[in-house]
Design a protein around this nucleic acid. Structure first.
Lengths: 198, 198
DNA sequence: TTCACTATACGACACATTGTAAATTTAGTC
DNA sequence: GACTAAATTTACAATGTGTCGTATAGTGAA
């Protein structure tokens, strides 16, 4: 946002990083309900009052973290979109990029997406993917299998995006037993059974 | 459990019902983090201490409610299983029953499944459906499209169960714009594109 | 109806958590 | 090295938590 004008104070970055790391740490150990500002500050080795200089409360902190996550993913996807030549908005290249990004930060994503204790993150990712899938279906128009089979567009979107995010979450929970490339191929095999256009 | 031996004290049933109703009420108004035992007891018009006679804390109460939900759904599905003649474990009849049950208690389910604030419930339902879908795939064996297309069984299960539960959740969130029968048919159209056996 | 039983209500307690408000110290910027 | 802003420290009121007795009142059975 204001990156070009003013650089952010390193102390701010440090504190926020400490808080986020501490949060992931604690979430690994206990349920989210048990994470108090007290414990969080203690684990982050910062003063409790300092927390309130950065976030309104813990839910607020979660939202900010989710914002950052979405921003990261957006960057990963935007970069790969350039190389795309598929008619679909989500193609194998993009999915592989996404899965590789998740795998590269698997500690974070496993806790944040895999444990169903922080629905905000899954929620946001679902929204992002829903948008992409919706665009994809729009682009294909009336000659797609979905249109031919008389399937409501919105239902197809519900179905596909939930399937995608659910597959990713399960993959994370099982500690990523397949490579990103393999999983992406499998996913498109399953999807291709629905619509052979890819 | 102990139904045949001793009948449960109606005061217990009353208190628990008051607590559960109050909880749904509050969840409609505010985020789950803001629901304290204080507020809950006040809304339920019972004494705060009485809450602790029934539940350890709020997360414990949620678990018990999720248990009840799964039990209800099990009953609905078990009844309909009898009428089944399809080779699949989840068939249209069952899905319709499930959707009708959800629609009949839509206020509860919309809040509990639709708002992503109570992941325990979605979690449990996902586990239930995963089991059923897994059985279905097992029964079909090696002649299914999934096997033919060289798709890993576990990935297919992740995909299908997430798609199913996600579709239901989205349907609830949009205030059930389709009838249970229609949605079930659409769902099996989407699934049939994967495996024409149903 | 009477009576034993037990769920609920009530008041009180120690303790943790929250959110805010100073004044002060520390560290980064220019 | 001086200015600025972040972080610390201490303190405070308000709320929430979990657990005591003890009193009250609804329940089911004799």
């Amino acid at each position: 946002m204001d990156k070009p004008t003013t650089r952010t104070d390193p102390r701010i970055l440090r504190t926020r990083q400490l808080l986020r790391d501490a949060f992931i740490d604690l979430l690994e150990e206990m349920d989210i309900e048990k994470i108090s500002v007290n414990r969080l500050a203690e684990r982050a080795t910062i003063n409790r009052v300092t927390f309130y200089l950065h976030y309104k409360d813990i839910p607020d902190m979660l939202e900010k973290m989710a914002d950052d996550m979405i921003e990261d993913i957006h960057q990963v996807l935007d970069r790969s979109t350039v190389k795309s030549d598929s008619p679909d908005v989500i193609n194998t290249t993009m999915l592989v990029k996404l899965l590789e990004h998740i795998a590269a930060h698997s500690k974070f994503y496993k806790i944040i997406l895999g444990s169903r204790r922080t629905p905000i993150f899954t929620e946001r990712l679902l929204r992002l993917l829903t948008g992409l899938i919706s665009e994809g279906i729009d682009k294909r128009g009336n000659d797609s299998v979905i249109a031919k089979a008389n399937i409501q567009k919105d239902i197809a979107i519900w179905y596909s995006s939930a399937a995608l995010i659910g597959t990713i979450v399960s993959w994370l929970r099982e500690d990523m037993p397949y490579t990103p490339v393999f999983l992406a191929k499998q996913f498109f095999l399953l999807r291709t059974l629905q619509d052979p256009k890819d």
